[in-house]
Computed example of a mutant assay.
Amino acid sequence: MSHACPVQNCSSQVASHLYMCPRHWRMVPKPLQTAVYESYQKDGRVSVNHREAVRVVEAAEAGRSAIKLPPGTRALTIYQPWASLIMIGAKPYEFRRWDFSLLPALAKLVGQRIVIHASVRRPSLDELNDILDRIEQGESALKADLAEPLVRQMSAAVGAKVADLHMAPLGVALGTAVIGQPRRVVDIFKGAVADSDRLDEHMFGWPLASIEPFPQPVPAAGAQGFWSWS
């Protein structure tokens, strides 16, 4: 037994024990996936959670259709506030513990435009305050004049337990950037510079330039590493 994927214009047939085709299901944020599972286990029927999952996917598909990017464009999921800091030009490097250009399949990304996607992970107040402390102490790779206002605004919102972090939204694609040749951090900075508390990951800086924000954030589930946007 099978049924059609409930997402509009999707012709995929889905096994009876699944709700959506695999491609669209991967676009549903993990918390909503869990809610879909739990409501079906409880009631044995399609619920408001199922309908919300379809709405989220269709909104994401509509957003992707409106943005013309070449086939094969890759995306990179980044925690907030880092993703939004990239989009405002305050974070010129993404720091990781590996050099992606050493992998033949990824080396071709150097000089290419990638999608910057914000993770669904909500930053803690301690994390945000640590960023502000590092900026004040001159130990940050961020552009302080651009970064500090956004981080302070976000810190206030998180401290007040505001649900909607509109200044740095979660679980959405924010825009694109051109990714450059990774460089060792010791070759980039003369002093000890770190813009998060995960110092062991500050081995390579991935340059991000020519930032182009989307007109509106596009809902997307994201994934680890580089993943296929189109």
Rank of each mutant, 00 (worst) to 15 (best):
P207K: 03
S196I: 05
A173I: 01
G205M: 02
A141G: 15
L208T: 07
A147G: 05
K143N: 08
P149G: 02
F214Y: 06
P213R: 06
P213S: 04
L128T: 00
K190G: 14
L174R: 06
P169K: 03
L199R: 15
A147P: 09
I188K: 15
H202K: 11
V172F: 02
V185K: 15
Q137T: 08
R152L: 04
V158I: 07
R184I: 03
H166Y: 07
P149Q: 03
H166E: 05
V185M: 14
F214T: 08
P213K: 08
A160W: 03
S210E: 14
F214K: 12
G171T: 00
P207Y: 01
P207N: 04
P182C: 06
A157E: 10
V151E: 03
S210D: 12
H202N: 09
G171F: 01
A157H: 10
G175Y: 01
D130L: 03
D195M: 13
A177T: 05
A144N: 04
V193E: 11
L142A: 03
A156G: 12
G205Q: 00
E148S: 09
G159R: 09
R198P: 13
F189Q: 11
L132C: 06
E201Y: 08
K161I: 05
L146I: 01
V185F: 11
A156L: 11
G175E: 01
L132M: 02
F214G: 11
L146F: 01
L165V: 00
S140M: 04
P169V: 00
L165W: 01
V186D: 15
V193A: 13
A194E: 15
P215G: 07
L150Y: 00
M167P: 09
L142I: 02
L132A: 06
G159Q: 06
A160V: 04
V162M: 09
A147N: 04
A163L: 10
